[in-house]
Computed example of a mutant assay.
Amino acid sequence: MDWVSGGLAAACLGTGLLHVLRVALRRRDVAAELSHAAMGLGMAAMLSPLGNPVPGPVWTVVFVLGVVWFGGAVLRSRTFGGDAGHHVVGSGAMLLMLAAGHSAHGRGVAGTLGLASVLALALTGYFAWHALRCADGCRRAEPAPGVVATRTRTLVAPQLAAGAQLVTAATMSVMLLGMV
């Protein structure tokens, strides 16, 4: 199963790097793009058969900051729906996997069905649903007449972001299911 973990790690690494590139090109929604980048890079590190180059406490700080930043946005808006709520759930799921000792092969700590397993199962459902939502967002709209496609325009297209988020959501579901 190392080839599956390696393939998923490579896909997550690519999505993480794509979101970093989108930050440089778009310079909008920086916090959200960086959150997606951290999630992709963090999952790549967890799944990598070569090992995690970043210490666990660093990842913990990154995802605690994500919960705090987007949690503040949720509190200010007084609604949990939307992008801020999704980033809170995503950062929380990453913290759950870190706390459960997610290994490089996509398996959490072996044990009985406990609270972490129940949370992992619920989060698996959430990320499977989110993957379906992203798949719907991948449908390419027809370009407006006279608009020429360029590499930069393609990199900042919402369909590409939805495709990258589809990869990370599906991978997150697989990783969380491995904790059950």
Rank of each mutant, 00 (worst) to 15 (best):
residue 1 M to V: 07
residue 4 V to A: 15
residue 4 V to M: 12
residue 5 S to F: 00
residue 11 A to I: 04
residue 20 V to E: 08
residue 27 R to G: 11
residue 30 V to H: 07
residue 35 S to W: 09
residue 36 H to T: 01
residue 41 L to V: 02
residue 41 L to C: 04
residue 45 A to T: 05
residue 46 M to D: 07
residue 47 L to G: 08
residue 48 S to M: 01
residue 49 P to T: 08
residue 49 P to R: 14
residue 51 G to Y: 04
residue 53 P to V: 00
residue 54 V to T: 10
residue 55 P to G: 02
residue 58 V to L: 05
residue 61 V to E: 03
residue 69 W to T: 13
residue 70 F to H: 15
residue 77 S to P: 13
residue 82 G to L: 10
residue 84 A to E: 03
residue 85 G to D: 11
residue 88 V to L: 09
residue 88 V to R: 13
residue 89 V to L: 15
residue 90 G to Q: 13
residue 91 S to I: 08
residue 96 L to R: 09
residue 97 M to P: 03
residue 98 L to W: 00
residue 102 H to R: 12
residue 103 S to I: 03
residue 106 G to M: 06
residue 107 R to N: 06
residue 110 A to I: 10
residue 111 G to H: 07
residue 113 L to G: 09
residue 117 S to L: 09
residue 121 L to I: 12
residue 121 L to Q: 09
residue 124 T to D: 09
residue 125 G to L: 09
residue 129 W to N: 15
residue 130 H to W: 07
residue 133 R to I: 02
residue 136 D to A: 15
residue 139 R to F: 06
residue 146 G to M: 01
residue 148 V to I: 08
residue 150 T to P: 02
residue 154 T to V: 01
residue 156 V to Y: 06
residue 159 Q to F: 04
residue 159 Q to E: 13
residue 165 Q to K: 15
residue 166 L to D: 07
residue 168 T to W: 08
residue 170 A to K: 09
residue 172 M to N: 10
residue 173 S to E: 06
residue 174 V to M: 11
